Amino acid sequence: MRKKPKPLKPGAHIRIVAPAGIVNPKNLQITQDFLTHRGYTVSQGAHVLDQHEIFAGKETDRVQDLVDALSDPHVDAVITARGGYGSVRLLPLLDQIDLSHLNPKCLLGYSDITALHAYFFTRYGWVTYHGPVMESDWTHENGQIALDVLAGTKTCWPTRAMEVLNPSHAPITAPWHGGNLTVLTSLVGTPYFPSLNDAVLFVEDVNEAPYRVDRMFHQLLLSGCLEGIRGIVWGEGVGCGNDTDPLTVKQIVYQMALECGVPAWYNFPAGHGVNNWTVPLGEPLTISDNHVLLAGE
């Protein structure tokens, strides 16, 4: 059963957690000040600024901060500090804790946080949000869109720069699942990979050569993970080759769409690039040639 968190209200309490890489305190403070100035109460998990090996603290501490944030009745939303690497190491520890009695809260992040998006949907059916982390730049459009989406006031994403590949004759309404392609592919064969049956696969990546993107798509295909998908959306692929490559990411996405017999969209404004618009994962969205909107809007 799909469970959506309550919209974020003005003055809500936001908790920062760091489930992955070591945090830059200066960058964190910039966004914390921005959110405070906008009227939100912002607090940090006890271990956000910890350092252990390449991670923001030990696994047990990072999990505890996340569980504390989700369990605290005074916390309304959880925003991750950054990506990097490390979220996947928390999943077995989360499995030792029963969170089924909790109502979902807005959980926001991208990149390595893809592992947590997949976890909370597969385990509890929670809708979570792919969007900026605290170390992102919130002072421009991305930050405002994130707050509007979490508040439930933004329900349409115009996508004039997005290209339609293998076009459909009608809009498609289906939940989106995915996030970072590399992180998502690493979950193949685990109990945490979300079912893509009757869903749209949304993926993006950074600094991955086209042949590696092709290999990951084929791993998803050959493992059966793409059975029943309704469409493919590629976000911003920063550093993933260029238009002069013999095989481009755009060609790969197009070929995979043909293989699966579904439409595809290229260059949706979300990912590691300048544009990182917040989108709900697990909630039905309607995508057409030039916009995405919440189903029913």
Rank of each mutant, 00 (worst) to 15 (best):
E141S: 04
D148Y: 00
A257F: 04
Q51A: 13
N197E: 09
I16N: 10
V133Y: 05
K250E: 03
P10Y: 10
P263G: 01
L147T: 00
N180K: 04
R212M: 10
D50A: 09
T155N: 09
D137Y: 05
Y85Q: 13
W138A: 02
R160V: 12
K105D: 05
E227N: 14
P263N: 02
V149L: 07
G84A: 08
F55A: 12
L70G: 06
C260Y: 03
G224H: 15
A295C: 12
P10C: 15
L70M: 04
G235F: 11
N267Q: 12
K4A: 09
A161M: 14
Q32V: 11
I172D: 07
L187Q: 03
P7I: 02
E135Y: 14
N197L: 09
L35N: 01
V133F: 15
L285S: 00
P104M: 13
T60L: 14
G271A: 03
T122N: 04
A295Y: 11
Q32H: 13
V253C: 03
L258K: 12
G296D: 02
A118I: 08
Q219V: 14
V75W: 06
L258T: 10
H74I: 08
G271T: 04
H52I: 03
Q32K: 15
N142P: 01
G143W: 01
G239K: 02
P10T: 14
G125E: 11
N207M: 08
D198M: 07
L247G: 02
P210N: 04
N27G: 13
D95V: 00
